[in-house]
Amino acid sequence: MKTVDDLERIRKQAKAMTRLRESAETTKIVVAMGTCGIAAGARETLSAIMDELARRNLQDVIVTQTGCIGLCEQEPIIAVMIPGREKVSYGRVSPEKARQIVASHVVNGQVVGEWVIPTG
């Protein structure tokens, strides 16, 4: 049985989440989680991203998923979207590369040029 306080807390959390998710001001990391992505190791890449965000206490970065984007040979693929800047996609992102992308691109704003892939 939930108390009124519990419900209020859940309501506040949900509101805060909706605000973050819908805001154009929030940095987003999108992980491709189609069959091709998962087979290439997207789960491990995603785990590394979540772990790195938790470790650095980056509460205002939103991680979402997408399906196959038609570049299966480049999987695992992630995209980093920072407000006011162009979306950048990275290919063949191992867990180790993912941690570096969080540190370099998400935290310091430095695109990791050598792993960038062109997307339509």
Binding site: I10, A16, A54, Q59, V63
Partner: peptide, 16 residues
């Protein structure tokens, strides 16, 4: 969600 208390379920720190 209940067990997590003040940690929102969508937070990266909820994963571990």
């Amino acid at each position: 969600v209940e067990m997590l208390g003040d940690t929102p379920i969508w937070s990266p720190s909820a994963v571990p």
